[in-house]
């Protein structure tokens, strides 16, 4: 159920899990659109020659997925900040899962803090971060 107001949010609540499209086709298309050329986003073999385990999903695309996940949960939310730490590359064509959980609720100003984690199929954290989200007071 989508969240409409701050009163509906509970500390510790999980956001619905989000499966981002990490296909090489999307990663490559996005990288080209934003002007990031080079094999690290477009070609697994070329990325390996650069010392990477494979082609990566661009970081700002991952951030976009984090925002999309939050808006799936709370369509009227205003995302005040997304703060990410990229611990390991998100490898294209590998399945990843984004999880989110509410870790702070301020009912007075309508803001919540959300922990965000991008994990691969082995359960390893590739990206983590937090979001500060403004919700309607209701």
């Amino acid at each position: 159920m989508a969240i409409s107001t701050i009163q509906e949010v509970v500390f510790g609540e999980d956001l619905p899990t989000f499966i981002p499209d990490t296909s090489l086709a999307i990663a490559s298309q996005f990288a080209k659109l934003v002007g990031w050329g080079g094999p690290r986003f477009t070609d697994h073999e070329g990325a390996r020659k650069e010392g990477l385990p494979g082609a990566m999903v661009p970081g700002i695309l991952n951030q976009g997925y984090l925002v999309a996940m939050i808006h799936h949960w709370a369509p009227d939310a205003e995302i005040k900040a997304i703060d990410t730490v990229f611990r390991a590359p998100v490898i294209a064509d590998e399945k990843h899962t984004i999880s989110g959980v509410v870790t702070d609720v301020n009912e007075e100003d309508g803001q919540v803090e959300i922990d965000l984690t991008v994990s691969n199929e082995k359960g390893e954290t590739r990206v983590f971060g937090t979001a500060t989200v403004q919700l309607p007071l209701g």
């Binding site: 500390f11 510790g12 703060d83 730490v85 870790t103 702070d104 922990d115 983590f128 971060g129």
Partner: peptide
Amino acid sequence: DDGRAKVENYCQWIRSK
């Protein structure tokens, strides 16, 4: 510098979970 957790929220989390 790369920490994003408030100590009070750690406590809340440990107890609520």
